[in-house]
Amino acid sequence: MGKVNWIGLWTLIRREVGRFFSVYRQTVLPGLISSGLYILVFGFTLEQRIEEINGIPYTLFILPGLLMMNTLTNATANTSSSMLQMKLLQQLPDILTAPLSAMEISIAYIIGGTVRGTVNGVLVMILGIVLIDLPVHSPILTVCFIIMVSWAFASLGLILGQLSDSWDQLAMMQNFFLTPLSFLGGVFYSINMLPDWAQTISLFNPIYYMINGIRFTTLGIADTSPLTSFIMALVMTMLFTISAILLMHSGKKIKE
């Protein structure tokens, strides 16, 4: 075994990816179904009554936001639930007593979450293309952005999973923190439609930049500079990744 336990790392990645694919009905299909429902409901009922935003029909406008919401919630859910489940079911000692470093364990979990987030995001994108002709201005940039956001939120999920002691605690963090931030990040509206004070508050919401960025790479429109969105996403990714690795290294709530 050299400086990096490559086989161990690869094995843990396979386990993490295999875990969510083995229950794809819970981990992949729900996002697709709910996104499909949003498209149907908004497409057939509300779109006639809501004005275009920046020259884009409403259903099309919200789709990048739905895509991003689906991406980040799945990426977060994968790592947080996997970590908490392993803690509660006494599986974590198997990993912690193996010759794997804190960084290898963190990266393996994060990659597992990134794959789930990316699969979900890309599937919603394909759904949009098939159902409502979603124009993807830059497919490569879109996929790269999905991967980066998945990585960032998989890291955040790992932190939440490690810090949680119960499903209740984890659900609280997701319901009272992540879901509101997602909805208030501009999935269903442009922040230009908000009063000034609300616009200012939105600028402190990291998810706003994620949605803004993906809206640019798909529809070619953005509320704020795409470069700012990209930099913010990159900063979040680095911040969450480093925090997750340091937390794993500290052994907080997983080692006594």
């Binding site: 075994m1 086989i7 161990g8 006494q90 198997d94 193996a98």
Partner: peptide, 28 residues
């Protein structure tokens, strides 16, 4: 190590779990 606490897994058959475990220890 064979720990006192028994672990539970919902996702994989035991053969697969053992293969994973071997992988963590660097076995090809």
């Amino acid at each position: 190590i064979a720990a006192q606490e028994l672990s539970i897994d919902w996702f994989f058959p035991i053969e697969k779990l053992l293969l994973f475990h071997a992988g963590y220890y660097g076995l090809s």
